[in-house]
């Protein structure tokens, strides 16, 4: 009887929960502007789907039990082996938890890792836009070696990142102080993060690291502040100020911007 009551409540709650996942899940990342962010979002929704019934199972237990079994003084007293264990329950619990975890490891973890491996293969980087990203305390600095732009700046002299929509971008991440190249020992770790791209990679002194992104939406920091470069690893007092504006534009607009940068001598 208790079991049935519990089961019905659980199914109802889980269904409501799944409806919630469908309705709210796609907004989990708030705003996505790259295929990588979409991959992460889809993986998250997949996880939500499976976690929801588990979550409600436990939560319902924590609420149902105290309400239902309150003050059962002396009426029923579980006794003997039955009170101490319940083999089917234990077996189901352990099997389900192993299965769910193996599933999660296969998908989304391993399947997404496959995609990450693929993204770095040379044939998939053919024609990619290369952006040199240099981090120093506390500034992001962008260069476009294919276009001869060494220091991308907006008219006010702030660092700025322009990306053409629909073209694969390969960020080349390095950490050193280009103003004090002799002070090698002073660099720290930063983390290159554009929230709308759904991915961040650390920028580490002495290493060159890569991040591949496919921007999908024309947008900019002014339109949505999630489209900004933000340092995500603490790097000293200037850490909160270590951001830069991002513009994702059409191909033509990108070329126009490159020309303007050339004219400005950047």
């Amino acid at each position: 009887m208790d079991l049935i009551l519990f089961g019905v409540a659980w199914v109802i709650l889980s269904l409501l929960g799944e409806w919630g996942v469908s309705a709210w899940g796609p907004h989990f990342y708030y705003f996505t502007a790259s295929t990588q962010a979409l991959d992460g979002l889809n993986a998250s929704i997949f996880l939500f789907r499976f976690l929801t019934p588990i979550f409600f199972f436990v939560v319902l237990m924590l609420i149902f039990v105290p309400l239902r079994f309150k003050h059962r003084e002396a009426t029923v007293k579980a006794q003997g082996r039955r009170a101490r264990t319940n083999r089917p329950f234990v077996a189901i619990w352990i099997t389900v938890s192993i299965l769910v975890n193996v599933l999660f490891f296969l998908h989304p973890t391993t399947s997404a890792a496959e995609q990450q491996f693929d993204s770095l293969l040379p044939q998939n980087l053919h024609g990619a836009l290369i952006v040199d990203v240099t981090a120093r305390q506390w500034e992001w600095h962008f260069g476009y070696p294919q276009y001869g732009v060494t220091a991308a700046k907006d008219p006010n002299g702030n660092d700025v990142l322009y990306l053409p929509v629909g073209r694969t971008v390969e960020f080349v991440l390095r950490s050193y102080d280009f103003n004090h190249p002799y002070a090698l020992g002073l660099d720290v770790i930063h983390s290159f993060w554009i929230p709308a791209f759904g991915e961040k990679e650390d920028v580490i002194p002495g290493e060159t690291r890569y991040e591949v992104i496919d921007p999908t939406v024309i947008t900019s920091t002014e339109q949505n502040p999630m489209v900004r470069v933000q340092c995500a690893e603490v790097c000293g007092p200037g850490h909160p100020y270590m951001y830069a504006a991002v513009h994702i534009v059409s191909d033509q607009a990108f070329l126009k911007w490159v020309a303007a940068e050339h004219k400005a001598g950047n």
């Binding site: 992460g40 993986a43 990450q116 983390s191 991915e199 961040k200 995500a232």
Partner: peptide
């Protein structure tokens, strides 16, 4: 625990 998601969540 899922790296593809964690790359977004990490340090936030």
């Amino acid at each position: 625990a899922d790296p593809v998601v964690d790359l977004q969540l990490h340090d936030t």
